[in-house]
Design a protein around this nucleic acid. Structure first.
Lengths: 366, 366
DNA sequence: ATACTTTATGCACACGTGTGCATAAGAAAA
DNA sequence: TTTTCTTATGCACACGTGTGCATAAAGTAT
């Protein structure tokens, strides 16, 4: 039923030569005389020859293929990363296997196993939480691997990585809020992505302390979520935020943009004006941040660049070029969810101050 | 450097049998005696054997691999579709090659060529604009192909497809607006995705005419965009909307959610209250629609389901099962961007009517 | 004991491509 | 003409796996 593909053997038969000659001619070997070479190449075109990459892979022991594991391809953050990866890979003649782990370690290991079975030349994993047996297995199969924004501490020399500097990002966020005059700044984190959460919390804490502000544990709340989905993050932000509010913060730095949107919602429900009464800083700079009201001030992660960089490191690794890990700098993006702190004695800024009194009335529905 | 993988030949040597016996034992063939079978399977585990899928593919002439072409993996719509595809594929033991065409026909053809070279068992293409030479080539290489929300008219019997019913979606949108009392309803479309735009326009027009409303060409505006990116759509909506406004529409049905957000922005700039003064309906139901203000009423496309369904059709095709194309039903999702038309003489609905007076004040910042 | 069936295994080839080595053909040198 | 060197080509094997067929071993029926 399925049409038989034409092989170099078929071309050889028609041209009256051996398959070796055809193979060499098609690869442009100078061993073959120019006229024969030209004739065979033309013939290949006419006969509609398409090289069989599977056979080539078996022979050369290289598949020109990389595996990309993501925690969720429906996550726009990872969509951007994947775009960068695919772009660089394709340019270098590589194809990309994509697989979605649902942020589950077991599934991720199964995916790695499949990739290994398919003899991918290298593996890229995003936001991966690498367990110890996982690491052992990776070490055993010896497939070059690069982690993107990895969620594990890495001391092994066989695992490479490219990440955005979480601590620096947190510092940018907190410094921005400090500069606006805020002194009671909360942090709203998550437990489902332990490492980056830890890093951002660390950056938050250090920056505060460097300014001489004592660390208040009640200013920090960690939402214990499951598999890190979109809707979950919003709900988590919405649910956990009141705790920080009770602690009296005037600004919140959120683990990511979706959490921040959750906080934004909680504020809308309670009639808290953003940014007049509360400043909010998100993290990631997903597209949505430009379109919510108010638009979110956030920390930009270079997502596509992250993917590109990781792919480059992996390709270098495959060519046995020297490589090094990369820590990319995040950037502060100013939008509309942050504003200067209104002084307690508000004699000069009465236009803003008037919001404070009617905090509890502007609530109606639900 | 790279460790040598263990092959069935290696296992055979250790077990003192031939590689054929190992091959059969590992595949659970009853030709091999139970004890030998068990011993070999155990041995394979101990030696860390991982079957070489490349060699298997060469032999069986099946790669258990499908190629997925998307116009942009950074588009959250396609991210969802990809998720559905990957899910079903993996469950069936298939791996997915992902490639991004940037909505460019030439690149898409190049990708198809690569997929063919890699001998994928089947191809899935999303939102693809299939040119005639493209179709010819697909027909020639005879790789089973399923189109997802394809942008071309299809009469060939070798091309299969799964789509969401655009015309029905448009009908839902327009009927909803009619029910709210609107009679001057605009359509804001795009030229970069001709087929679905045409279908939605058609549904819009038919529904209006079925209600006895004449078609006004000045109620329709088509934004002529380039490669269909996110930001472009918003800008297009924002730029083109004034034309419809001048035509006097009280409601707009938009080609997609991003266009609708563009319209929303234009309204904010001009101090037009949504939904009190203008109703807006989007299309796609991307996640963002829940988080903008007001939240967008829109037409939901079952994105993940679309991917799942397409993958199922493709798998059926590969198993030579009878298949049929699918037209999935869209759904209307009611949110906050649509409201009843305020009657010209507004004596009964004064709660809404009062908004009309302060149209021009509610604007402050740039 | 012989002939026939059943069971378990190996041999050899196939899938399509790449490449080291031998060699035939032709050219150049003696 | 013979020898040597160059150039172009084919032979044969390799990559790792699956499978039709032959066959050895063991069991069963005559």
């Amino acid at each position: 039923m399925r049409r038989q593909e034409v092989s170099i053997e078929d071309i050889a038969r028609v041209a009256g030569v051996s398959h070796s000659t055809v193979s060499r001619a098609l690869r442009g070997s100078t061993l073959i005389s120019v006229d024969v070479r030209a004739r065979i190449q033309q013939l290949a075109g006419e006969m509609g020859y398409t090289p069989n990459a599977v056979a080539q892979s078996l022979q050369t022991r290289r598949t020109s293929t990389i595996g990309l594991v993501v925690t969720s391809i429906a996550d726009p953050f990872l969509g951007d990363v994947a775009k960068g990866v695919e772009e660089v890979a394709r340019e270098a003649g590589f194809s990309v296997f994509l697989s979605d782990s649902h942020n589950d370690s077991d599934q991720e290991m199964a995916i790695i196993e499949t990739f290994h079975r398919r003899r991918v030349d290298g593996i890229l994993a995003t936001s991966s939480r690498i367990t110890s047996e996982y690491r052992k297995r990776l070490k055993h199969i010896r497939v070059p691997t690069v982690l993107i924004n990895g969620q594990a501490e890495l001391q092994d020399d066989f695992l490479h990585w490219v990440s955005v500097d979480d601590q620096a990002g947190a510092q940018l966020a907190v410094e921005h809020l400090l500069q606006l005059g805020h002194r009671s700044i909360g942090y709203l984190g998550v437990s489902s992505r332990p490492r980056s959460n830890q890093q951002r919390l660390q950056g938050y804490r250090c920056t505060l302390e460097a300014t001489g502000i004592l660390f208040h544990s009640e200013w920090v709340a960690i939402a214990s979520g499951g598999e890190a989905s979109y809707e979950e993050d919003v709900a988590a932000g919405e649910a956990v935020f009141p705790r920080l509010l009770d602690a009296g913060v005037t600004a919140v730095f959120c683990y990511n943009d979706m959490i921040a949107i959750g906080v934004l919602r909680a504020c809308q429900e309670r009639g808290i004006a953003v940014p007049e009464q509360l400043s909010i800083v998100g993290y990631d700079d997903i597209r949505m941040t430009s379109y919510v009201t108010p638009a979110l001030t956030t920390i930009h992660q270079p997502k596509v660049e992250l993917g590109r960089m990781a792919a480059h490191v992996l390709l270098d690794l495959l060519e046995n070029r020297p490589v090094q890990n990369h820590l990319l700098p995040p950037e502060l993006v100013l939008r509309g969810s942050t504003a200067p702190l209104v002084p307690v004695a508000c004699h000069e800024k009465d236009a803003l101050g008037c919001h404070c009194e009617r905090r509890e009335e502007s609530q109606a529905d639900t």
